[in-house]
Design a protein around this nucleic acid. Structure first.
Lengths: 122, 122
DNA sequence: CGGGATCCATTTAGATACTG
DNA sequence: CAGTATCTAAATGGATCCCG
C-alpha cells in the first residue's frame, strides 16, 4: 500500500501525530473537559482545583500548549491581585464532542478492560 | 458541583483516565490503525514495518498492553520458525471509528494549528 | 522470527522556593 | 494570584546482546 507521507498518521513525521500527541498527554484532555463543564471562563486556581492532582508546573505547561494550539484562550486582567481567565476557543469547542465520545467509550468498556487486565496479569 | 468519583474523568483515581492513557500513548493509536488498515492479522515484523520508527522494545510493550486491554489478540503458531499474529479484537474494532474521527479532526485542523503555533512562538 | 534482558540517554513530572 | 526557576526523581525510549 502506498501511503501519503504528509497526512498518514503512520508516517513518522506526520503532523497528525504531532496534534494528537498534545491532546493525548496526561492533562490536556482533563483541562479541556473541565473548561467545557464549567461553560464559562475559569481562573488558573479554579482549574487546578477541578483537577486535584495536577501540579502547578504541569498545569501551566498544559495551558500554554493548549493556548499555542488555539484550543484555549488566555485573558489577563491587569488588576491587583492579578486575574487570568481561560476558556475554550471555537476550535477547542469542536474537539469536545470527540473527547466526550472517548469518555463514553471508556465508561462502557473500562469494567471489562480492567477485569481483562487482572485475568491477564495472572 | 458534586462529581461522581468513580466515573468522572476529572477525578484523580478515575479508571477512564487509566483507559485513555493507554490509547493516548505514543504507539497504541498507530498500532490499532495499522491493524485496521490491513484488515487482517499481521505479524510482529509487519507491524514494525508499518510504523517505521517504533523500536522493537516499544512495539513489544505496546502490543502487550493492547493485549492486556483486550483490544488486540495474539496468536502463536508453534512452527519453526515461530510465527505470531496480531489482530484487532471485537472491542478494539469498536474503538476504530473514534480514532478515525480524531484523525479527521487533526487533518482538518492541523494546518491552522501549526500556523497558530508559529505565530505564538514569535 | 519474535521476542526477553540489560544498560544507558533522554524526557517528563513533582517538590520546593521565590516573584511581580 | 498566577505564575517562574531550579533541582531531583521517575518514566520512557533506544541500542545491544541473547535465546528458543
Amino acid at each position: 500500500m502506498i501511503r501519503n507521507q504528509v497526512v498518514d498518521p503512520l508516517f513518522s513525521q506526520c503532523p497528525v501525530r504531532n496534534v494528537l500527541s498534545r491532546i493525548g498527554d496526561r492533562w490536556s484532555l482533563l483541562v479541556l473537559l473541565a473548561l467545557h463543564d464549567k461553560a464559562e471562563a475559569m481562573r488558573f486556581s479554579e482549574i487546578g482545583k477541578a483537577i486535584p492532582d495536577v501540579s502547578q508546573k504541569m498545569l501551566t505547561a498544559t495551558l500554554r500548549n493548549l493556548e499555542a494550539d488555539d484550543l484555549v484562550s488566555r485573558t489577563i486582567f491587569p488588576e491587583v491581585p492579578p486575574r487570568v481567565e481561560y476558556k475554550l476557543t471555537k476550535r477547542g469547542l469542536t474537539l469536545i464532542p470527540l473527547l466526550n465520545q472517548l469518555v463514553d467509550w471508556s465508561l462502557e468498556n473500562m469494567g471489562a478492560i480492567i477485569r481483562h487486565r487482572k485475568k491477564y496479569a495472572m
